[in-house]
C-alpha cells in the first residue's frame, strides 16, 4: 500500500468525476469517464485486489465506454439539461 500513490490516484479520480459532470458534450464526458475507470483499475490493483482490478479493467474501460458510445450514436451528443 504505497499511500502517496493511492492519494494521488484518488485525487485524479475526483478531478475526472467533476470534469465529467461539468462538461456539456456527452462525448467528452464519455472520454473522461473512460479515463476515470482506467485509473480505477490501477487503484484496485494497487490495493492488492487483483481480480477486482481485472473486472474493472475489462468492464469499466472497455465495455462501458463502448456501450456509452453506442448510446450516443443512437441518441445525440447534446445533453438536454
Amino acid at each position: 500500500m504505497i499511500w502517496e500513490l493511492d492519494f494521488a490516484l484518488l485525487l485524479f479520480m475526483i478531478f475526472c468525476a467533476i470534469a465529467a459532470i461539468t462538461v456539456r458534450d456527452l462525448l467528452h464526458a464519455t472520454i473522461i469517464l473512460s479515463a476515470y475507470s482506467l485509473i480505477m483499475a490501477v487503484i484496485w490493483s494497487e490495493m492488492n485486489a487483483v481480480d477486482v482490478a481485472f473486472t474493472e479493467a475489462a468492464v469499466g474501460a472497455g465495455i462501458t465506454t463502448v456501450l456509452f458510445i453506442a448510446a450516443i450514436a443512437r441518441t445525440g451528443r447534446r445533453s438536454s439539461d
Binding site: L27, S34, A57, A61, T65, V66
Partner: peptide, 14 residues
Amino acid sequence: IAYAMINFISTLAI
C-alpha cells in the same frame, strides 16, 4: 496486458 488491450479497444471504438 488486459489493460493494454482494453485501452486500445476503447480508443478504436470512439
